[in-house]
Amino acid sequence: MKLYQKLFICVIGIGLLTACGSTSPPNQQLTETQMVIQQAEQLGADDYAPLEIREAKIKLGLAREAVEAKEFDKAIRLAEQARVDAELAQAKAQSGKAEKTVAELRESIRVLKAEIERNQRTN
C-alpha cells in the first residue's frame, strides 16, 4: 500500500470517528438536564439568574435539534453545557436568596436594637 493510501484511510477513519462518536441519542443526559433546569426554575432562577437559565433552555433546545439531526456528539455537548448553565442558575438563585435573607436578618436585628435603645431612652 502506498503511503498516501494509508493517510487517506487514516483521514477517513478520523472523520468517521468524529462524525459518528456516538451512535445512540443521549436521552438520559437530556432528561437530566431538563430536570436541572426545572429545579433551577423552582429555586427562582428566573429572578436571580435570568440570563443563565435562558442560556440553558436555548442550549437544551439546540441539543434536541441536534438529536433530531442525528448529531449525537453535538447533542451531548450542548446538553452538558445546558446543564452546567442550569447548575450555575441554581447556585445563583440559592446564593441570591441567602443574601436576601442575610439582609433581612441584619435589618431585623437593626430594628430590634433601635427598639432597645428607644426603650432605654424612654425609661
Partner: peptide
C-alpha cells in the same frame, strides 16, 4: 473550557451561598 468557566462561577456562587448561610446561623 466553557464547562470549567461555568463551574468556576458555580464555585463562587456556592461560596457566597455557604458564607451567607453561615452568617444566617450566626445572625439567628
Amino acid at each position: 473550557a466553557y464547562l470549567a468557566k461555568q463551574k468556576t462561577f458555580i464555585a463562587r456562587e456556592t461560596a457566597q451561598l455557604n458564607a451567607a448561610n453561615s452568617e444566617i446561623s450566626r445572625g439567628e
